[in-house]
């Protein structure tokens, strides 16, 4: 039962770990948690004038699958518009990372984090 190198790579070398200035009006921040395991995840996006996500960062305190899911999610949203990013589904992450049933909530967490970050960004724009 081989698993793809890509999965392993996201486990071992998560991309985009870190944070962006929270008070920056072009940065949206989402902090979410999975009650199943008590993991917490912070995901941030930086949106340019054209409405394109030009950078994304995350930090996750949790299991490897949650880290891999958030790593993959940040990779995916970079270069997408805010609208495109809103269409990301946790099932895409499940497929890409081959997550087993007990770890599906990790992908849900990543999806929730992107939604929360987008909502925060939009709220800042309205303000």
């Amino acid at each position: 039962m081989a698993y793809s190198d890509k999965v392993l790579d996201h486990y071992n070398n998560p991309r985009n770990v870190g944070s962006l200035p929270k008070s920056d009006p072009t940065v949206g921040t989402g902090v979410v948690g999975a009650p199943e395991c008590g993991d917490v995840m912070k995901l941030q996006i930086k949106v340019n004038a054209a409405g394109v996500i030009e950078d994304a960062r995350f930090k996750t305190f949790g299991c490897g699958s949650a880290i891999a899911s958030s790593s993959l999610a940040t990779e995916w949203v970079k270069g997408k518009t805010v609208e495109e990013a809103a269409n990301l589904r946790n099932t895409d992450i499940v497929q890409e990372l081959n997550l087993p049933p007990i770890k599906i909530h990790c992908s849900v967490l990543a999806e929730d984090a992107i939604r929360a970050a987008l909502a925060d960004y939009k709220a800042k724009q309205k303000a």
Binding site: M1, Y3, G64, L99, P100
Partner: peptide, 9 residues
Amino acid sequence: IETVGGVVS
């Protein structure tokens, strides 16, 4: 047990 994706359950 190994589950899909090389994760141990």
